[in-house]
Simulated scan of single mutants.
Amino acid sequence: MNPPAKSRALWRALIGGAAAAAALSAPLAQAQNAGAYPTKPIRLVIPFAPGGSTDILGRLLAQKMGENMQATVVVDNKPGANGTIGCDLVAKAPPDGYTVILGDVGCMSMAPGLYTRLPYDPLRDFAPVSLVGRSPLVLTVGENSPLRSLADLTAAAQAAPGKLNYPSSGTGGPNHLGAELYAMQAKVKVSHIPYKGSAPSVVSLVAGETDFGFLTAVTIASQLNAGKVRALAVAHTERLPSMPNVPTMTEAGLKGFTADAWFLAAVPVGTPQPIVDRLYAEIAKALPAPEVKAKLDSVGVLPSGLDPQASAKFLRTEVDKWRGVIKTAGITLD
């Protein structure tokens, strides 16, 4: 037997009221939790092995943020598959602010173009916190190379299409795609030689096995100081403090060319905005600290500190940029 119409109406009203109360209480609970944040250790996931640029920057941030927040920030290295394993882990973590990724240009903007079955979507699954810094690629040659400038490289590449070669730390990484972007913009043809890691790439230039490379400042630092390699140009809009005499690519003749190995802090989408804002504030506070800035200068990282909205816009632009390069070059990792 069906209940009377008045009873059904009352029941619907009660259910509707409960749903509305729940909807109103959810943001309030999130705000209350954000106000107490953090109440337990924060895990900063580094999707690469210890010792690289991302790891160095991540440990600097973790230490300084922990001191400022009077909290524990634990670095958790989760390497593998060009950083995509660590990124996927964070994408699927609870959106509570206690799992943060420090992703790089590869796993956050190049991977969508390289993998047709990527298990996460950087634009859909993450809430950017801050573009922490950029490590511009540096056009580098060995000490015995006859190439003395960007103009020399382009002229040599035009004279012998496909003869000049460049190393990378692996197919699909910043060194590889940075060189492909150069080839496209300079309208030349060059050959790619992938190595297993950054160190062998530098060794190949020193030994004369490769002709030029787009490598990060931290990668070439020791060999550059020893005079074993030469830096011809920096792929950024400004010169590096650690290389004040090395021109930008625009200054050297290739207008508008930029290629950075950048680092982006992000949390799973759905993380309460007050927590995102708190994390951003702490990163912005940590970057200008003298000990942090000195270390970043020494490894060729330019601190950025973009806010969440600007960082999200930057990420969309980079995904589109590198997807276009990858498609034009016909590169895939599937």
Rank of each mutant, 00 (worst) to 15 (best):
R316L: 05
G83A: 02
D76N: 12
L147P: 14
P112E: 00
T317D: 12
G173K: 10
D76Q: 15
Q30K: 13
A329R: 07
A93L: 05
P112N: 00
S201P: 13
G58H: 06
Y280R: 05
A312T: 11
P241H: 11
P50L: 06
L28I: 06
W322R: 06
R12H: 13
I56F: 12
N245A: 11
A151F: 01
A157W: 00
Y115E: 00
A252L: 01
G52V: 03
R278E: 12
A217M: 07
A26C: 05
R239H: 11
L147S: 09
P47A: 02
G97Q: 09
P94M: 01
Y98Q: 06
A235V: 03
L254R: 02
S7Q: 15
S204K: 02
F314K: 08
H176W: 07
N33E: 15
A127V: 04
G80C: 05
P47N: 09
K295Y: 10
R239S: 09
G330F: 00
L287F: 03
G106D: 07
S222C: 07
V129Y: 08
V100E: 05
P47L: 00
P274V: 04
A22I: 05
N33A: 15
K163I: 06
S298R: 12
T84F: 04
L153G: 14
G35P: 13
Y182C: 04
L306P: 15
S191R: 04
N77T: 03
G227T: 05
V105E: 11
G208M: 03
S25Q: 10
G300W: 09
T317P: 12
P146A: 00
